[in-house]
Design a protein around this nucleic acid. Structure first.
Lengths: 197, 197
DNA sequence: GGGGTCATGTAATAGGTTACATGATTCT
DNA sequence: AGAATCATGTAACCTATTACATGACCCC
């Protein structure tokens, strides 16, 4: 199972942006933000430079020129190479065809739910619900704004996925609260966790 | 927004295991596996030692003794401290009460879907569907095996969540395939992506 | 009794984030 | 004119993963 020379998902987006033309790292950051990709990857400005260095070393991008046209620091412009285009397609294919085990923080927390007394868990879950509702509203706003601008749906699948995921989690939490609220369970909890401190 | 002294989720599980009694790093790995926690966090043996060192430095665990009872390498046993117990509870509370933006690989890929020609995307998504179905079956097996053993449901919420998430993704993929399969869209794709190479 | 593999740990390396640095432009 | 902010990059530091090391049991 040969793994990617550059594994960081940010690299995928950098390659994708470079498909539209050469750019320097800082500009890539701006583009990613403008295109709303920062909702899909986590990165900092620092990691952009790291990733660009890696891509360069791997031959997926090439240094095109270094110029100081503006009075700003010298900028180095990079362009995607044929190898880079191939990598982008191949990587995308893999990401779509084969699910990777993800490890959401919430699931981790759920697996330790029994540490907390039921009534406290319920309180916390209610707080989460409220925030989840906010996020769902945000997501819906993004989608309807885009719809109003006649953006083609392909450009929105990621946001639809995001909204769907939030809704799923929301339902799960609601049902979970229901179960935790059951007095029968609460009585039982003290038995189950006795001796676990 | 003061962040945790030890941020790695693995630390959370280590603290939780130490609630049941002192242990040495290698044993923690065994315990985590036995308890099926390796479905919820990603770690390697190496990271266990790293995390234990961090927890020690942060004062959440303390060195209890170092012994060579067995002919095996010398082992250092760690115990959770009061600060550690507090940290565990507080961290859990935070994880449950406040959703963190996660960045699933699949969503990243979706946001670049337009790079691939529709018919290829459909093929890839069908492959994903098949694997997703396998995972769902696995998850269901875990759950019914546990049910057969009368495991209390609190110990299974994480697996239920996992199954739910898989099912959600499955539905999403099915619907997405439907939309990509539409010939109207396929014709349009060539227009939309013209000039993007 | 030699080859695997289990039990346990350390060291080297690579990855990514935070912090720092610098000059220009705009704001008040 | 001084303060804040933008544009751009480098360097130091921390984290985490892979690779390496070592001795005992177990199997045939």
């Amino acid at each position: 199972m040969a793994q990617r020379k550059v594994a960081n998902p940010l690299a995928l987006f950098v390659l994708a942006e470079l498909m539209a033309g050469p750019a320097h790292p800082y500009a890539l950051g701006r583009l990613l933000q403008e295109h709303g990709k920062d909702r899909n990857v986590q990165y900092t400005r620092g990691s952009l430079y790291t990733v660009v260095r890696q891509l360069l070393k791997a031959g997926f991008i090439a240094q095109q020129q270094t110029l100081r046209d503006t009075p700003r620091p010298e900028r180095t412009i990079y362009a995607i190479t044929d190898a880079g285009r191939a990598e982008l397609r191949d990587w995308l294919r893999e990401l779509i065809a084969t699910p990777r085990e993800e490890h959401p923080h919430f699931r981790a927390a759920l697996s330790l739910l029994m540490v907390l007394p039921p009534h406290e868990a319920v309180d916390l879950l209610r707080k989460r619900l409220a925030i989840l509702d906010d996020s769902a509203r945000d997501a819906r706003d993004v989608l309807s704004a885009a719809a109003a601008n006649d953006v083609a749906w392909v450009f929105l699948v990621d946001d639809e996925y995001r909204l769907g995921a939030i809704d799923f989690e929301r339902d799960f939490v609601v049902r979970l609260i229901g179960r935790l609220d059951d007095p029968a369970y609460q009585k039982r909890w003290h038995g189950v966790t006795k001796g676990m401190t």
